[in-house]
């Protein structure tokens, strides 16, 4: 009886979903509603509205900047959560003696890996900068560049044996860099309020102002993402 009811419920729900699917426009149909309203407006006016030749950047950092702001805050919150969860175990409460330092890792660093990573590091860094800079005008952008730069920082930390005691990025700078994404958005909001009268609006004058705001956001997302990836690695590596 229960099986019969389950099968019946599945059939009814499935039929409704299939009927809904049948009503959808064909994939790629240029007359589909999704291509005739918002997307058409963005394609027609994106470059002139935002000053960015990359329509993906125009959507990500201008039309839907609130959405991207939310994503940046989510990434920042992830690092904060990891720090809150892992930090008490790392720092002993006052009064108690610190536990004896754990023995050095059994794996001696390989000179081969260290050499190749040092050899490739400048190229990886240059690639990250290229991806970041391209994002304002061409496909690419802060998130991708941040991941590349963050991976490079993690690789260098592993090869050079830098843990929390001796991080590659000094702690004082790392704290600000980890918040660079939300901070850049905060700055862009103030600039938007002052220059365009709307939060996250792009100022129309001067002409380079819009590029500067977009580049500021890309930089904040990229550097912030890299610092957060390094921070996550360091927290999980422990002392």
């Amino acid at each position: 009886m229960r099986r019969l009811l389950t099968a019946l419920a599945l059939a009814i729900v499935g039929a409704v979903m299939l009927a809904g699917l049948a009503g959808l426009p064909r994939p790629g149909d240029p007359a589909a509603p999704v291509h005739t309203h918002v997307a058409a407006h963005i394609v027609a006016h994106g470059v002139e509205d935002t000053g960015s030749r990359n329509l993906v950047t125009a959507v990500l950092l201008a039309y839907r900047a609130y959405d991207t702001f939310g994503e940046v805050v989510v990434i920042f919150a992830a690092l904060a959560a990891v720090m809150v969860v892992l930090a008490p175990a790392a720092a002993p409460p006052p009064g108690k003696t610190a536990p004896p330092p754990s023995p050095a890792p059994a794996v001696a660093p390989s000179p081969v890996v260290g050499f190749v990573i040092r050899l490739l590091a400048p190229f990886i860094a240059a690639f990250a900068a290229l991806v970041l800079w391209h994002g304002e005008a061409l496909p690419g952008g802060g998130f991708q560049a941040g991941v590349i730069l963050g991976a490079l920082l993690v690789l260098l930390s592993v090869v050079m044996g830098r843990g929390l005691e001796q991080p590659l990025v000094p702690a004082a700078a790392a704290r600000w860099l980890q918040a660079a994404g939300p901070l850049a958005f905060a700055a862009a909001m103030l600039i938007g309020l002052a220059g365009a009268g709307a939060v996250l609006g792009l100022p129309a004058e001067p002409a380079w102002g819009r590029h500067a705001v977009l580049l500021l956001l890309e930089l904040g997302i990229g550097l912030g993402g890299a610092a957060i990836i390094l921070g996550l690695y360091l927290q999980m590596r422990g002392h």
Binding site: S110, V113, V116
Partner: peptide, 20 residues
């Protein structure tokens, strides 16, 4: 790049496996 990076990553894996 492939000739540099891929043997290095294989070496890193084998090195870590051997030393652990």
């Amino acid at each position: 790049l492939v000739l540099l990076s891929s043997p290095t990553s294989c070496h890193a894996l084998a090195h870590a496996a051997h030393h652990t």
